[in-house]
Computed example of a mutant assay.
Amino acid sequence: MRGAPLFVGLQLTISICADFRMKFCDMQSSTSIDQPQILLHAFYGNLMRWSIIVSVCAIPSFIIAFKVYSVTAMVMGIVMLIAFYSFVASTKIWRASANNWQSVMSALSIAFKLKIFLALIWLPAFLFTKEIHFFVLLPDLYAGIIAHESIMYFLKISGDETTLFLPTLLTTLLQGLIVSLLVVLFAFFVVFPFSCLIRSTWRGR
Results as ranks from 00 to 15, higher is better:
Ile53Phe: 04
Val75Cys: 14
Ser61Met: 13
Tyr69Asn: 13
Phe43Ile: 06
Tyr85Gly: 07
Met80Arg: 14
Asp34Ala: 14
Ser61His: 07
Ser55Lys: 09
Phe84Arg: 10
Arg49Lys: 12
Ala65Asn: 15
Trp50Pro: 01
Ile59Phe: 12
Thr72Pro: 14
Gly45His: 08
Ser32Trp: 06
Phe87Ala: 04
Tyr44Val: 03
Ser86Cys: 05
Phe43Lys: 07
Gly45Trp: 06
Leu47Cys: 09
Leu40Trp: 08
Ile78His: 12
Pro36Ser: 05
Val54Ile: 15
Ser86Pro: 05
Ile78Arg: 10
Ile64Trp: 03
Met74Thr: 06
Leu81Gln: 13
Ile82Asn: 05
Ile33Asn: 10
Ile59Met: 15
Ser70Phe: 04
Phe43Cys: 03
Met80Asn: 13
Ile53Glu: 03
Ser90Tyr: 01
Leu39Val: 06
Asp34Ser: 14
Ala73Ser: 09
Ala89Lys: 00
Ala42Lys: 12
Val71Pro: 10
Arg49His: 01
Tyr85Asp: 05
Gly45Arg: 01
Tyr85Phe: 13
Val79Ala: 14
Leu81Thr: 02
Pro36Cys: 03
Ser70Ala: 08
Val75Asn: 14
Val88Ser: 08
Val88Cys: 06
Ser55Met: 11
Met48Tyr: 12
Phe66Ala: 15
Phe62Tyr: 15
Val79Ile: 15
Leu39Lys: 04
Ile53Lys: 07
Ser90Lys: 04
Tyr69Pro: 09
Cys57Arg: 03
Phe66Thr: 15
Tyr44Arg: 09
Val68His: 15
Ser86Asn: 07
Ser70Tyr: 10
Pro36Glu: 07
His41Trp: 00
Tyr85Val: 02
Leu39Arg: 12
Lys67Leu: 11
Tyr69Ser: 07
Ile78Thr: 13
Ile33Pro: 07
Asp34Leu: 08
Ala73His: 05
